[in-house]
Simulated scan of single mutants.
Amino acid sequence: MILVPDPHGRDGELTLVVALDAARAFADPAGVVADARRWSRYVGVVDNDVGAVEAFVDDHGIRNDYALGERDKRRALTEIRAAANTPRYVFVGASPEDRRLANHVGWEFLTANEAAGKAGWELSGDDTGNDAGDDAGVSRRLRRALDQRSLWPF
């Protein structure tokens, strides 16, 4: 099972999944998850790079409600929906691909900007996670990737 047993027995009506790039868009990702736990039964972060998710949640002190194993986003969303018994499933994503994925597997979709606006969460200000469906977002993601290339081992 992909859901981690909840020792607190939350009974919220929502399963919330945040793509890693969208989670990075929030000024306080741990605060976002803590706030979302007040009204969500399950909350967590997913990405195709499971190691990056594990590092992110560890760095921010987030307990992920999803045991990802080697699942990519598509498989994780599909299995979470099958295992979670909630009336609503919301995926906060950061790209047009995330939006298409949410539509394909039957999840509601929000960008980090939309989620922040609805929940009163603060964004980090670097535009990460707010470019789903936006052509300028492609150039922002490419620029970020190039800026991060100094982190590569070669």
Rank of each mutant, 00 (worst) to 15 (best):
G120I: 13
A36T: 01
V90A: 01
R100K: 15
D58W: 12
G93Q: 02
W121T: 13
A136C: 04
N64L: 03
F56E: 09
V32E: 00
V57F: 09
T128Q: 15
R143F: 09
D35G: 05
V53D: 06
A34Q: 09
D58F: 13
R24F: 00
D35Q: 10
W107H: 04
D126Q: 12
F91I: 05
G117I: 08
N85H: 14
D126Y: 13
R144C: 00
H8F: 13
L151T: 01
I80E: 00
G44I: 04
W121Y: 15
R71N: 10
A116I: 11
L68W: 00
I80N: 01
V105Q: 05
D58N: 13
N103L: 13
N103S: 14
Y66G: 03
R144P: 01
D72F: 04
R71C: 06
A115M: 08
W107K: 04
W121Q: 12
S124Y: 14
S95V: 07
N113C: 06
Y42M: 00
P5A: 10
A102F: 10
E54K: 15
M1C: 10
A27D: 06
L123C: 10
A83M: 02
M1N: 14
E54V: 14
A82V: 00
D135R: 12
H60I: 10
N113V: 08
R10S: 11
E108P: 05
R41I: 00
V57W: 08
L3D: 13
R10T: 12
P96S: 14
V105F: 06
D65W: 04
L123W: 08
L3Y: 13
